[in-house]
Design a protein around this nucleic acid. Structure first.
Length: 1025
RNA sequence: GCCCGGAUGGCGGAAUUGGUAGACGCGCUAGUUUCAGGGACUAGUACUGUCACAGGUGUGCAGGUUCGAGUCCUGUUCCGGGCACCA
């Protein structure tokens, strides 16, 4: 019987769906295991072969765990809100829900082909109101919470109000942007608006007037992780800084926990590192510099280098800082205002370029150095970031390269306080050296000085130790249509949350997906976008990461309309044991989801502080592009002539004139003009001008040069037969077809240029010439210069993209080879984490392996036959060694080596003609996570009624994994010379004796006595001569 | 500039703890076949050398540690990724 994968796979797809094989429920008799994939955004292009890489890897693990008796949760869904669908809606007027739904169905079809063990009854779709109800619900919870730093936990806002009412805010250690202190009496005296404004400074979801990343092209603000180098990550449009009122999430409250939690999770080190950088914790000190002219007022700065405080030569404030008004002297006011205006209008992009060229302006006022009492000028400069630290810095040009550049620019003093560098050339930033010119820290090492200065500052009450974070609060509103509406309404301009019973607040229909005339978001177009009481609703929507921040929780209990997740479900499933997805989410989704989870943990919804215990980032599958080489006719002709002419003439000169090649042969008083068909007239004119002085002229159509065979003879004969003053035109009157030159034809690089060719027209880098001619009309009459009888294409590894004609569609591969082959091949390519090129050629190998495996189960007459005969020791050894290796490999996610282990086993069993049930059945189970269809079919043919995917993973027997003898590598001075099989039981002395008495040893010893013999039992013998 | 990775045949990759470098697959070469072939099978395939053996050289480069280094250490080059005026 033939391995008919199409029939087999179709049969089992239906069968499994009917029997609900992959549906899971809470089962207290089994241990849970949660395997999750980052759910896809369903784009219009469908899946290409790179997408399933992670899904296959996770599916293998999920199936393996299941075979080991775990209750495996392995769900899938769709991240369906987002910009591309909305952009498409703007272009076509189609509702994004419709196109999204079409795309989801297409994705689902493609995913279904691949035989994943997803429990589709748990599917979540983020744009489904039943789902986003809980996104909105969580937002309300965030709105109604504040963060108590003294217990490192979120608490209800009502408790904060109680504290305000009883003692004001003086003793609260909260994550807040509230700076004013008030008493309980003050609180009671505030009106509703004043109270709400203060509470807003404490809420974990809050509305704030801040500088945001505004992207005019997309018509929306973006979060920091959505901006790279001043351009939007999606679409690549320029981004500006703009002050706007926006919703933010107070993720900074969790900075410390987000950092600490990284120690508890099993993630790739580089991803943790990216998150650490993103959080950007730095230890230092807050130090106050009193203002010279205004008593009791000061500038507070943050520094990580208090050891350089005696090197401060100016203080610098960000243009956005509130201090600006206070410190600007009337005399300087105009200039300062002009500078601020200019710098605030700079785009993010402009600000990032010319980092070396600093700008700034003197304010006219001075601060007092807290230790020396010196007067220090105060400047404003946009190299100081308003949003980091206090928005002001103490500038130490000698030991900070930015301050150094600024000081040089404006002629400010540079004062060395740490010995070790050469400050006449550049700032010395190292922590090595010794403090000088620094009062009480002279002679200390910088590291010690840092501590000493902080202690001293605290003693004198002028500063304190402080930890700062680079992490910013996440901007949470988007001025777009296709996202979750905020469950917020406004009463007298004050935002209030909707009552939970009103959720979900569904996305209303609008007549257009564009902003309104007066620049309001699309939701402002919706009719009756207000509460029942008539209060207007928020018109922004939530960003992409809102819906993806808690989807893994919702999978645990996806159809629960009363809770985000039931206590029972979350107690059982807890968190994700294995999470697989792309590394591009390191600073976006993976940090927001951790934050979101920690908040839900604080309010008692989830039970684990970290959502993803183990993370694997799959690499990309890159495309393997193919190229054909199209000849540049003139260059090609010149190349050919240069090869032929020397064989005929001793002396000639070759020139190029207006696309016509002229060859002058002074000896023969002859010119040869080579012209393209459409240049013949010009060539004739040219010939006429040359035809003085008795010259003979031959005009040749370039097609003859490029396509003709006996070029040499033609030229020779024609020259011979030319008469005096004759102008002769030879060659057929044909237009030059496109000419393609095979890759390894000599000199090809000189006269061709590569163009991408569709990879479906190429097999093993050999071009299907006929198919190529049909590919594009202009190539219909193409001419090919072959190698032998083949056209060989060039290739290169690039990202998969339509324009490079290198996209491989999984459906096509499944159709040609089957899903099992595709699964196996994607895993066989190399380690999951690594990016690698997709090469169609290699797929034959794994397909062949499956066919070989299949054939083991059939006899000469092609009947299914498994023998019940006891297996031999050899066979048992093959089986158990394979099982051991495969299990070890799966557990370290090294699927590529697991598959080669199977290949080795099948090759060996085939050699032994093994068809024994006791060997092949366990092997089939072990292979089933990789190739679920073929194994299920063989399992059924072997007479089993239950699915192989409910079987038990076979346990290997150590006894059969050990050989009796060992092949020792015998080396002399570390160079292996020969191998020797010796009984494994032999002790070192025996091994030594056997090796030394071997005739080969005598040869290598050359009669000398060995200086030393090293025997590593079971491995090698090294003889030092 | 800073921080992470990586570099092994014609190609993807293997070598898990310092112990036979190149498993497995592709490709290529030759052959077998009751063969339409893009089928199945057998043998070979790091480089160099030789009729064949023998030998020599080999994991980006230069050193070092070791009986022994792809693996550890130092320096260096190149490639990929992340961050980037974060005080």
């Amino acid at each position: 019987m033939e391995y008919n994968f199409r029939k087999i796979e179709k049969k089992w797809r239906t069968n499994w769906e009917k029997s609900q094989l992959y549906k899971v429920d809470i089962d207290y008799n089994k241990q849970k295991y949660y395997v999750l994939d980052m759910f896809p955004y369903p784009s219009g292009a469908g899946l290409h072969v790179g997408h399933p890489l992670g899904y296959i890897a996770s599916d293998i693990y999920a199936r393996y765990k299941r075979l080991q008796g775990f209750n495996v949760l392995h769900p899938m869904g769709f991240d369906a809100f987002g910009l591309p669908a909305e952009q498409y809606a703007i272009q076509t007027g189609q509702h994004p829900a419709i196109t999204t739904d079409i795309n989801i169905r297409r994705y689902r079809e493609q995913l279904d082909l691949l035989g994943f063990s997803f429990d589709w009854s748990r599917e979540v779709i983020t744009c489904d109101p039943k789902y986003y109800k809980w996104t909105q619900w969580t937002f309300i919870k965030l709105f109604k919470s504040w963060y108590d730093k003294s217990i490192e936990k979120a608490r209800p806002i009502d408790e904060l109000i109680t504290i305000f009412e009883t003692e004001g805010n003086a003793n609260i250690n909260a994550a807040t942007n509230q700076t004013k202190i008030f008493s309980e009496k003050d609180w009671r005296g505030f009106n509703e608006k004043e109270q709400q404004d203060i509470l807003m400074n404490y809420r974990l979801a809050y509305l704030s007037d801040t500088f945001v990343n505004w992207c005019p092209a997309l018509g929306t603000v973006l979060a920091n992780d959505e901006v790279a180098d001043g351009y939007s990550v999606r679409g690549g449009y320029p981004v500006e800084r703009k002050k706007m009122k926006q919703w933010l999430l107070r993720i900074t409250a969790y900075a410390d926990r987000l950092l600490a939690g990284l120690e508890l999770v099993d993630w790739a080190e580089h991803i943790k590192e990216v998150q650490r950088n993103w959080i950007g914790r730095s230890e230092g000190a807050l130090i106050r510099f009193p203002l010279k002219d205004i008593p009791d007022k000061y500038i507070e700065i943050f520094t990580t280098r208090p050891d350089t405080i005696f090197g401060v030569t100016y203080v610098c404030v960000a243009p956005e800082s509130e201090l600006v008004a206070l410190i600007t002297k009337t005399s300087e006011k105009d200039k300062v205002e002009e500078y601020i205006k200019k710098s605030l209008n700079k785009s993010e992009r402009e600000r990032l370029t010319d980092i070396d060229k600093k700008t700034g302006i003197f304010t006219g006022s001075y601060a007092i150095h807290p230790f020396t009492g010196e007067e220090i000028p105060i400047w404003i400069a946009d190299y100081v970031l308003a949003s980091y630290g206090t928005g002001a810095v103490m500038a130490v040009p000698a030991h900070d390269s930015r301050d150094y550049a600024f000081a040089k620019q404006f002629g400010l003093p540079i004062k060395e306080v740490i010995k070790g560098g050469d400050i006449s050339k550049e700032a010395y930033e190292d922590l090595e050296g010794e403090c000088v010119n620094s009062d009480f820290i002279n002679g200390l090492k910088p590291a010690e000085a840092i501590q000493k200065v902080i202690e001293e500052a605290e003693k004198r009450g002028i500063g304190s130790r402080k930890v700062n974070y680079r992490l910013r609060d996440a901007i949470f509103s988007r001025q777009r249509y296709w996202g979750e509406p905020f469950p917020i309404y406004y009463k007298d301009g004050i935002p209030y949350p909707l009552d939970e019973s009103k959720l979900p607040l569904e996305l209303p229909p609008v007549d257009s997906y564009l902003p309104t005339e007066d620049g309001k978001p699309p939701l402002a177009r919706a009719k009756n976008w207000k509460t029942e009481e008539g209060y207007p609703l928020e018109t922004s929507t939530m960003p992409g990461f809102a819906g993806s921040s808690a989807y893994y929780i919702r999978y645990m209990d996806p159809n629960n309309d009363n809770e985000l997740v039931s206590k029972q479900a979350v107690d059982y499933w807890r968190n994700v044991d294995l999470y697989i997805g792309g590394a591009e989410h390191a600073t976006g989704h993976l940090i927001y989801a951790r934050f979101w989870n920690k908040f839900l943990y604080d309010i008692g919804v989830v039970v684990e502080d970290e959502p993803f215990a183990k993370l694997i980032n799959q690499g990309m599958i890159l495309g393997r592009s193919n190229f054909v080489y199209r000849a540049k006719p003139i260059d090609f002709a010149i190349y050919k002539l240069k090869n032929i002419l020397p064989l005929i003439f001793d002396n000639y000169e070759l020139n190029l004139q207006n696309d016509i090649i002229t060859v002058s042969l002074p000896h023969f008083k002859t010119y040869i003009l080579i012209a393209k068909n459409d240049d013949i007239a010009y060539a004739q004119a040219l010939a006429a001008s040359l035809a003085t002085n008795d010259n003979k002229i031959l005009i040749i159509n370039i097609a003859n040069i490029l396509l003709g065979n006996n070029l040499k003879e033609i030229i020779e004969n024609e020259i011979k037969n030319l008469r005096e003053r004759e102008i002769k035109l030879i060659g057929e009157d044909i237009t030059l077809p496109p000419i393609f030159v095979s890759k390894n034809v000599e000199g090809r690089e000189e006269y061709t240029y590569p163009i991408h060719v569709d990879i479906s027209l190429v097999r093993n880098d050999i071009l299907d010439v006929e198919a190529f001619k049909k590919w594009q009309p202009e190539f219909a009459n193409a001419h090919f210069i072959l190698e032998g009888d083949k056209y060989i294409c060039g290739w290169e590894v690039e990202k998969m993209s339509k324009s490079k004609y290198n996209v491989q569609n999984p459906d096509d591969v499944v159709n040609e080879y089957g899903a099992d082959t595709l699964r196996l091949y994607e895993m066989f390519l190399g380690p999951v984490e690594q990016s690698k090129p997709w090469d169609v050629a290699g797929i034959e190998g794994v397909h062949r392996f499956l066919k070989k495996f299949w054939r083991l189960f059939f006899d000469d007459k092609d009947n299914f036959y498994l023998s019940d005969i006891e297996p031999s020791k050899d066979e048992l050894q093959i089986l158990h060694k394979t099982l051991k290796k495969v299990q070890e490999d799966i557990e370290r996610y090294a699927y590529n080596t697991a598959i080669s282990t199977f290949m080795v086993a099948v090759n060996s069993l085939q050699e032994l003609h093994c068809n024994k049930k006791a060997i092949l059945e366990p092997l089939t189970i072990a292979l089933s996570p990789f190739a679920p269809f073929i194994t299920e079919e063989l399992w059924q043919l072997a007479g089993h009624t239950d699915s192989i995917h409910n079987a038990k993973f076979p346990i290997y027997n150590e006894k059969y994994t050990i050989d009796d003898t060992c092949t020792y590598a015998v080396s002399f001075n570390g160079k292996t010379r020969f191998t020797l099989d010796i009984d494994l039981a032999a002790d070192e002395e025996t091994v030594k004796k056997i090796v030394l008495s071997h005739p080969q040893s005598q040869k290598w010893l050359e009669g000398k006595e060995p200086k030393r013999v090293i025997v590593v039992k079971g491995k090698i013998v090294n003889i030092v001569v």
